[in-house]
Amino acid sequence: MGPIVPLFNISNEINLLMAFIIGLGFGFVLEQAGFSSSRKLAGMFYGYDITVLKVFFTAAITGMLGLIFLNFMGLIDLDIVYINEYYVTSSIIGGVIMGAGFIIGGFCPGTSFTAAAIGKIDAMWFVFGSIVGIFIFGEVYPLLETMYMSNYEGSVKISTILGIRDGYFALLLIVVASLMFWIGEIAEKKFKREDIIDEI
């Protein structure tokens, strides 16, 4: 039964090796998906390329279904798997600031690493910017601490809040995502930008 590392007291060295190998796969797939191009990523917000929407939701759905089926087959203990802690205020404000960073900078931290790896100079500056951003956060943390810690709701699942089973929620999300993919592909045709697609 999984997760293997916490349940079988695997040594830290092996855990770090797994991290490296998982990272290899992560980086390879991100780059293959075309996420090393900021203009492709930004295409999502102007409708000419919705790759971000497709990859992001497809990955989330795959992971979600995988966890549900693994748990059903008794292969993973979901009591141990990490569930993000929900601090209402900081999740929303943090997300808004990240959204602004996304449209201004054209990357997110993960994609900036892969883009920098293939030689995108703007991505290297994005990485530098995020280092500075984290440093500034550390310096002003005392001013933000109250807000950072406020409205804590715990490691709560959306299905619990809605009062439905995980499987129902997964199906709901899949239906919504399928509709978004369909609308997105219509948008891709409508806002088509041959010039940009050719360049990236």
């Binding site: 943090g94 990240m98 959204g99 960073g101 900078g105 054209g106 931290p109 990485v127 951003g133 984290i134």
Partner: peptide, 10 residues
């Protein structure tokens, strides 16, 4: 953008 993203992610 990186600066915003770094700050927001924390």
């Amino acid at each position: 953008g990186g600066l915003f993203f770094g700050f927001g992610s924390q």
